[in-house]
Design a protein around this nucleic acid. Structure first.
Length: 401
DNA sequence: ACTCCACAGGAATAACCGGGCG
DNA sequence: CGCCCGGTTATTCCTGTGGAGT
């Protein structure tokens, strides 16, 4: 074992790594040029350019499947807008927020307040918690009005915001402009993965939020390949990656729908594997191994960090012979007894199962057994070895046999 | 054709937590 | 301090349902 470790250290220290710019392979990296997204960027820029005339740009909605470059285009354009506004000495305040990583609707408001610097001022601050949503929104809008800010708010993954807490906030923000009169204004840019997102909105919000729309289509395999090639030039040392490897990456990621993020992720993991084994260049085998690794890694982490009862349910699903809800619930009850845990209701357990399904750990089929009722058949979708691995250091590990 | 099982899964509501407010 | 606020988890109660058995 120890020679492996030494080997890793030596490789890292020698500086002859395959990757010269690791940053370029991360999700956060926003490239200067975004191939195949000129049209979208242009539309976005055109809409936003109104701000240089001192008027309020229309609200925007950006749609598209994951990994189609929505976030990258938005960040890219918005960055340039900010730079330009600094040059021209026109005040524009841009804030970029990811609603999903923020967590809750309130935290979105809190982050906005934080970024705006409201909390550094005297008086009406927006604290970490304690205020009502309405009050927090009001304080932010008042601040914008008072300072006559030209405010552009980009909300990434805006659908998760609406799913969790409805469209009240959006309503307040979109309506704010009428209330504010001269001086300040707010432009909202929403980014959404879901094409049906608009249907969930209140009609009033819908019409004002999507004054303009930009739809991002998935990349084709060919386009993915070119994107990867360009990114590789930035990230890898000369000839540290074979064309075949890049092609395979593009093909694998393109198989579902052209998800550039997945493709780049795959490239990064493949590179890490190649480096670790001290290979002279990244080849197709590393890509394939990377794919395996990605498929296996995500559930491992999820299982490991899952709450106790979720783990119990997972174990119950594995142990129960039939996988039928009633059966799973019974084995779950038995497990709770052995682990001296409180027994949750069946309702809650079915809820947990559907959460596990969303996480991709189990799959369910509804089966009809006529006279003998109608229930779900639950199956584990990841290898049980991964689970016992993930629960190794857990106090519940003893329950798996 | 009708029944009726064994649940699914929605809605309302409660219990609890962390944290600011007055 | 008691209270309110929002968030999350869990319970209670409920209506809906496809098809094997009759």
């Amino acid at each position: 074992m120890s020679f492996d470790v030494d080997n890793i250290f030596d490789k890292a220290a020698s500086g002859s790594s395959l990757v010269k710019n690791r940053q370029a392979l991360t999700i956060d990296y926003v490239p200067e040029k975004l191939p195949f997204r000129d049209e979208e960027a242009k539309t976005l820029a055109q809409v936003l350019s109104t701000v240089f005339k001192g008027a309020r740009p229309s609200n925007l909605l950006l749609f598209g499947k994951p990994g189609t470059g929505k976030t990258a285009v938005a960040k890219n354009v918005v960055d340039r807008l900010q730079k330009k506004s600094n040059e021209l000495k026109i005040d524009v305040t841009v804030i970029f927020i990811n609603a999903k990583t923020a967590g809750s609707a309130y935290k979105v408001l809190y982050e906005v307040a934080e970024e705006l610097g409201i909390n550094k001022e005297q008086g009406k601050q927006v604290h970490f918690t304690g205020l009502s949503m309405g009050e927090a929104t009001d304080r932010i809008l008042q601040y914008i009005q008072k300072k006559k800010l030209h405010f552009i708010l980009v909300v990434d993954e805006i659908d998760s915001l609406v799913d969790k807490s409805g469209d009240d906030i959006l309503y307040n923000f979109t309506r704010a402009n009428q209330r504010m009169g001269k001086g300040g204004f707010v432009t909202l840019i929403g980014i959404s993965n879901s094409l049906t997102f608009k249907d969930k909105l209140d009609p009033r919000v819908r019409s004002s939020l999507s004054e303009e729309e930009v739809v991002f289509n998935p990349y084709t395999v060919n386009q993915l390949r070119q994107i990867l090639q360009e990114r590789s030039k930035l990230a890898f040392s000369d000839s540290a990656i074979s064309d075949a490897a890049i092609n395979l990456c593009a093909a694998m990621a393109g198989r579902e729908h052209g998800d550039a993020r997945k493709a780049i992720d795959l490239l990064r993991v493949a590179a890490e594997l190649a480096e670790r084994e001290g290979a002279p260049k990244v080849d197709e085998n590393h890509v394939r191994a990377g794919q395996d690794r990605i498929e296996k890694d995500a559930p491992f982490v999820v299982v490991k960090n899952a709450p106790a009862h979720h783990k119990l349910v997972i174990i119950a699903v594995i142990k129960s012979k039939s996988g039928i809800t009633g059966d799973v619930y019974d084995t779950y009850l038995a497990l709770c007894k052995r682990a001296e845990q409180k027994q949750l209701t069946q309702r809650r357990v079915t809820q947990i199962i559907s959460e596990l399904e969303l996480l991709g750990l189990v799959s369910t089929d509804i089966v009809n057994q006529g006279r003998y009722g109608r229930s779900q058949k639950i199956k584990i979708t990841i290898p049980p070895t991964t689970i016992s691995e993930a629960l190794k250091e857990d106090s519940l590990a003893s329950l798996i046999d």
